[in-house]
Structures are given as structure tokens and as C-alpha cells.
Design a binder for these strands. Structure first.
Lengths: 137, 137
DNA sequence: AAATAACACTTGTAAATATAAAGCGAATTT
DNA sequence: AAATTCGCTTTATATTTACAAGTGTTATTT
């Protein structure tokens, strides 16, 4: 017997996560929406990591069909759309913050502002609320 | 200005995470090591998700070279190896637990034992220590 | 000691996915 | 009305992954 707490899950939560957002580009899009204030197609396309446009289009469509992001016409400019995290998407924040905490510890080059890290380690819930407050809607 | 807490990171922690374990198979291997008591090559190969052997070999090598897992001869059977999480790997647990918490909420089919979920939401640190205590070494 | 089996890969080939660049239609700007 | 912006979509090529079979090393059996 391995671990009485976990046993052998058939409907595995990690596998579910992977099926919903389990690739590099999805993570980076979620990061852009959650922490960088990006919301337009070209924001993601030109974010520096160099996603190709067809991959971006399919990732946005997948995230939308999984209910993690929403897509609405931009009222300020009808030729473009505004992408935003849904409630389901916003609730990925604890996972993202945990990843960032880990990365800051193990990557000497990770440039997370010290103030951010301090908040993250002292009072993560407060930080989470602050970031949520800055998100659209 | 978008968010004074995040600004524009060049050494992005999410990107770092993706470079270290940022694909579906790496997540599933980490899950197997962290929660399922798996430690041998064939455990991963036959875990049910159907990873092909060459991909498994390269993922194990990558995770090892990134310092997330270790690889040692099995003293009980010299023809095989024991894979285990390093300290760096074990510290991915908060991220994994956060993902599982989210998945349990949004996937009706996710079969995480209720006892596990209750512990996770009431006292995650205690749960974490329990799981750590069950891990090798 | 030799043959067999178990184990962890490695290789070859086909299929799927990613990248890069160009093209397209609708909406806006000029 | 013409030109431009925007969000894709398509196409061609490159890379990655999947699947099947094979290889080398280490146990185990005979």
C-alpha cells in the first residue's frame, strides 16, 4: 500500500488540469491575463515569448471552451476582442502563485519584485485579494 | 500602468517553471512520484496514461538534469533504478495541491478522496507534512 | 559458466504539432 | 472611397511525439 490518502485515482485531478490548461502557452496566456494586464490578441502575440498566431488562436479557443477565459467585443473598438479570466480562471491564482514562489526560490534570474515575494510569503491571501481587485470586472 | 506589484518581469517565474517541468508528461511523472508511490521506470510507463518509452526516458533525464528528481540504482535489484523527488522537487507540492484543489472543484469526475480534500482545505500544511512523511528518504 | 529473462532505454518511421510567413474579411481610420 | 488595423486562417516547412521493434546491461535460472 502506497499512501492511504491518495490511493489510485481514476479521475485524476492533475490529468484534468493538464487537459484544461496543460501546456506552456496556456500557462503563459493565463499569466498574461492574471498578472500583466494583457487582454487583446496582439498583446499575447507580441508578449515576447514568440507564440505563433495559429497556436495562439487555438489556445485562446481551447481556454474559452474550457470556461477559463471569456471573449467579448471591445466596446471601445469593435474590430477587436477583450479576453479575460472567468471565475474558474481566476481561481487558478493559488496555483500560479505557488509556482512563482517556487521559481523565485530556485531561479537566480527570476525577477519577481521583492515586495511581491515578501507579500506572497507573509500574507498570500491578502496579495491574492489585491491582484483580484486589479483584474477587470 | 497595470499592476504595481508585477510590472514587467524579464526573468519570468512562470516561464522558468515551464522550462523546468512545463509539459503534461512532466506533471504526471511528478504526480506519480509525489502522490502515488511510483518510483520505477515501468511504474511510469504503465501508469495508464500511455507515455511512450522514448518520451519517458527524455522527461526523466530532463527532470533529473533540472534537479527535480534523482536517479539511483535500486539496492534490492541492481538492474533497475529508483527515481525520487529531490528537495527542489518536493517543494512543488504546494503548486500540485493548489492544482488538485482547483480540479476537484471544477471537475465532477475528479475522484479525490473526500478525506483528502477536507484536509487540503482545512489544514494544507498538515496534509503536506503527512505526504512528505510518506515519501522516501 | 551459459542461457534466459528483466529492465531501461534507443532507434526507425509515421503521424501529429509547432513555427513562420502570407493571406483574408470585417471594422475602423483617413 | 481607400488605406490600415485587427483577429484570425491557411500554407509550407520544421520539429516533436507516438508506436513498434531492437539493443545493451544486469539479474536470475539452469
Amino acid at each position: 500500500m502506497v499512501d492511504k490518502n491518495t490511493k489510485d485515482w481514476s479521475g485524476c485531478p492533475v490529468r484534468f488540469g493538464m487537459s484544461q490548461f496543460g501546456d506552456k502557452w496556456s500557462f503563459l496566456i493565463i499569466r498574461d491575463l492574471m498578472f500583466k494586464g494583457r487582454k487583446h490578441y496582439h498583446d499575447f502575440a507580441e508578449a515576447g515569448e514568440g507564440i505563433s498566431t495559429n497556436v495562439l488562436a487555438t489556445r485562446l479557443a481551447d481556454l474559452e471552451s474550457n470556461g477559463i477565459i471569456s471573449k467579448l467585443r471591445d466596446p471601445l473598438k469593435g474590430s477587436r476582442f477583450i479576453y479575460a479570466l472567468t471565475q474558474k480562471g481566476k481561481e487558478l491564482m493559488p496555483m500560479m502563485l505557488a509556482m512563482m514562489d517556487w521559481a523565485e526560490k530556485y531561479d537566480a534570474d527570476t525577477e519577481v519584485p521583492q515586495e511581491f515575494i515578501k507579500k506572497l510569503r507573509n500574507n498570500p491571501d491578502k496579495l491574492k485579494q489585491e491582484i483580484l481587485g486589479n483584474l477587470p470586472k
